[in-house]
């Protein structure tokens, strides 16, 4: 039981900031878990500790029975193939075409020399085009990534993740730099990955309205500590103030 288990996770950055403080929780396969909290509460650090873009100071992350925190570099690389990631600022390779950006999702399956020469199999190219079709950008495949709008870039990033085909998807405020309409289109794609492909999702979110609309369960961080764990509808005014502070007022996104 427990697809992803986070146990006593603590992160102290080199400058002494305690970004995560003994955080433990469990995620079941197929869940869409929302992670909320103020800016600086440790949400990004939490997601980055799961795939070890940030090295945890102590504690364990166990994915499907494998202790990710104990893996050496080659095994970590292999394990990362199962963990997709989507970022607030998309993090595409801007000077490369949309198609190449999607293909980078499959790099871990490619030989080093073949990928440096840019020779992807016809099969992989076809699959990349399919992923682009899913996010509705097949007609932009040859365009440079930098020429797309923010929402389109995030959809390319999702296509890259589809190409990778992970079991677990980490989304770090995927819509925080997008406008409301675009936000919903991006969130809908995440929802489809969750429902149709069975990807388990951990998603940092700023807006409670998005949390209520898309997630199946929520955890909240406050000053690096786990402050709430439960269903989205359980977050009433009282909890809201406890998570975001007395002064906070909820703003929505339509």
């Amino acid at each position: 039981m427990g697809f992803l288990k986070v146990e006593g996770l603590t992160k102290v950055y080199d400058n002494g900031v305690v970004a995560l403080d003994n955080v433990s929780f469990t995620v079941e396969r197929g869940e869409f878990l929302g992670v909320i909290g103020l800016s600086g509460s440790g949400k990004s650090t939490l997601l980055r500790c799961v795939n070890r873009l940030v090295e945890p100071s102590s504690g364990r992350v166990i994915l499907d029975g494998i202790d990710v925190t104990a893996l050496d570099v080659p095994s970590l690389r292999a394990e990362r193939r199962r963990i997709g990631m989507v970022f607030q600022h998309f993090n595409l390779v801007k000077r490369k075409s949309v198609l190449v950006n999607v293909l980078t999702g499959s790099l871990a399956r490619q030989g080093t020399i073949a990928s440096v020469l840019g020779s992807f199999s016809a099969e992989d190219r076809a699959k990349a085009m399919q992923c682009l079709e899913i996010v509705g950008l097949a007609d932009r495949a040859r365009v440079r990534a930098s020429e797309l709008s923010g929402g389109q870039q995030q959809r390319v990033a999702i296509a890259r993740s589809l190409m990778q085909g992970p079991d677990l998807l980490l989304a770090d405020e995927p819509v925080a730099s997008l406008d409301p309409a675009t936000s919903h289109s991006v969130m809908d794609h995440l929802e489809r990955a969750n429902k149709e492909l069975g990807q388990t999702i951990l998603c940092n979110l700023h807006f409670l309205s998005l949390v209520r609309r898309y997630t199946t369960r929520v955890i909240a961080l406050k000053g690096g500590e786990l402050a709430f764990e439960g269903r989205p509808e359980e977050i009433d005014e009282d909890w809201f103030k406890r998570i975001y502070g007395e002064q906070a007022r909820e703003v929505g996104i339509e």
Binding site: L53, R77, R81, M85, F87, T112
Partner: peptide, 20 residues
Amino acid sequence: GPVEAIEATGANRVQMVWYA
């Protein structure tokens, strides 16, 4: 950003340098 994104896919160092 792109470096992290490519690393997160499980690509190796050479691939990361070449693509990101």
